[in-house]
Structures are given as C-alpha cells and as structure tokens.
Design a protein around this nucleic acid. Sequence first.
DNA 1: TCCTTATTGATAATAATTATCATTTTCATT
DNA 2: AATGAAAATGATAATTATTATCAATAAGGA
Lengths: 154, 154
Amino acid sequence: MRHKNPWVCRRMVKEGLRITQTRMVIIDILTRNPEKHFSAEEIFLMAHRINPGIGFATVYRTLDLLAQMGIIQKMEFGDGKARYEMTEAMENVPHHHHLVCTECGKVIDYTEFTDEEKELLAKVEKELSEKYKFKIKNHIIQFCGICNNCGKRG
Amino acid sequence: MRHKNPWVCRRMVKEGLRITQTRMVIIDILTRNPEKHFSAEEIFLMAHRINPGIGFATVYRTLDLLAQMGIIQKMEFGDGKARYEMTEAMENVPHHHHLVCTECGKVIDYTEFTDEEKELLAKVEKELSEKYKFKIKNHIIQFCGICNNCGKRG
DNA sequence: TCCTTATTGATAATAATTATCATTTTCATT
DNA sequence: AATGAAAATGATAATTATTATCAATAAGGA
Ligand SMILES: [Mn+2]
Ligand SMILES: [Mn+2]
Ligand SMILES: [Zn+2]
Ligand SMILES: [Zn+2]
C-alpha cells in the first residue's frame, strides 16, 4: 500500500498496525484539512467519494484508532456529534484554540498566541503534571459565547 | 412556588420563565453539588428520588434551558454523555479546570490558579472578544492525558 | 505465491437525546 | 380564593450518533 503520510505510517508500523487503503484515505483527508473540524459523517462522505466501498463503521474505527494514537484530537462543540482534527503534533498543523458560538454553533479557530501565553501554558501543564502525576498529552481550550452575527440579531 | 435559589429564580422571572417544582428540584441538585459533573441520567435519578413524578424529558429540557441562560455549563469528556455543572458565575462555585484521562475517563478538577494565570486568561478573553467581535461568556479548559493509575498499569 | 490474521463492510443493536401531544401547573387577573 | 390563558410537564415514540457482530477480504511476512 502506498504511504501518503510517512510520519503517521511509520508510527502505525511501529505499533504493528496495518497500512490499509481505507486508513490511508481517511488520514489523507485529515492531513489535507488541518484547520477543519470534521464529523465522522463528513469524513465518511468524503472518503466515500474517493472510494465508494468504504463503510461507515470503519470510519469510526479509524478515527478512534488515530485519536488513541494521539494523531488526531476528538472534540465536542455541543451539537451532539464528535469532531476530529489533526493534533498540533502533526507537521503543518498550527496549534490553535476555539471560539464556539452557543447560539449558532459556529466555530472560530485562533492561532495568535503571545509568547507569554505559550510559556504560561507550558508552565501550568508541567505543574499539573507533577502535582497530579498526570501525563498530559494535549489540551482543549474553548471560549464559549455569542458570535458577531448572532450578537446583531439576538 | 418556593424559591430555593433566589439568584437563579430572579433571572428566570426576568426572562418570563415560570418557577416550577421540577425546575427547582433540578436547580437545587446542581447548586448543592458545584464540584460534580453530573450526566442527565444522574440528575434524573437524584430528582426522581426527591419527586418520583419527574420525567426524563423535563430533565433534559431544564438542563438545556439553564445552559442557554448561562447558569450551568454543558461539557463532554468523551464518554458519549453530556455533563453539567454550575458555572463560575454562580456563588460558591470556585472556578476550575479539568484533567481528563483518555484511558479510564477519570476527571480531576483543579482550582489552583496563580494570579498570573487569571490575569492572562482575562487579557486573552478581552483581546479575542475585540478581535472577533465575540461576546465570551465562559470557557472550557481540559488537559487530556493519562492519569496516575492508568500510567502504572499501561 | 501462500497463509495467517488484522481489518473491513454490511447490518443489527445500543444508548443518548429530541419530538409529540394530551394533561397538568403556574401565575397574572379578577 | 377562584378563573383562565399559556407555559410547562410527563409518558411515549422517534431520531440519531455510535458500537457490536460476523462472515468476507486484504495486508504483509515467509
Ligand atoms: Mn480547530
Ligand atoms: Mn468540574
Ligand atoms: Zn453564532
Ligand atoms: Zn485513567
């Protein structure tokens, strides 16, 4: 099988996982859209366009697998379906946080961190890690509120 | 109807909502357990013990309502069910963030913020608010990783 | 190419949440 | 306190995201 994302494939091989067509299609979709927040269904539909044989169950299985490996991050924005995006650990993925509109569900990414923010976050992670003997792998930061559009209307 | 949580009741009256028995029972449960993360089912069971007539649908409706009003915060820790807790805006609710174990689902609250952290968070919220014309009401901060127990085993 | 076995896709099953609707409560008005 | 319009409720059915099952398939080492 052709290896589209060498870094991910190497990790899979290292863990004894097989590089399958379906997995590559899904990884490719996620890799090409680092700034999107796809639901399982959206990923299924895109994968289906590339290879109509792909099943829904396998999409879920693959997403779980990748999340478990720390390659993608599973998150919920409150609309009932989980969403997935590449973690910052992946190349080409700028680290970012989210603004979530509780009115319309819109999600804004923001990547503008000050050095101060980055340092503090790192420090906090380190402290928590030690205090609670907790191995921190990543974090989810969401600011919830009302977006520009909804603010005008409401 | 007797008003158990005056502050919440005032807000409800102001918005033209009715102070019902079922709502009071649910608000009371949440108010008394500011540090817990109850699922809808857990709240239903507790409410049911107080008043066996209360229905599951109304629990969901009330939780949605309170979340919409900003009185409680709806969050997901990845186990498929939403969880609810009083927002920091409520009295007696110390603001806190979460450590979530991706292995066993355990959730640790931590409240130990440095002044530095608080200030920075406020500053960031203000900047984002202006830049994106986004009215921020609260935030969710989760550090994901492996807890002490799971670390030993795994 | 062959063989073992991880993985897959179709499908059924599960579980959380939401919609429906007749009945009950709330509460402003009398 | 009694009245009545409207909001809210509870039982139930319906929906929807996710998971389990299992025979068939495809990876990949030999
Ligand atoms: Mn994002
Ligand atoms: Mn908490
Ligand atoms: Zn909005
Ligand atoms: Zn754990």
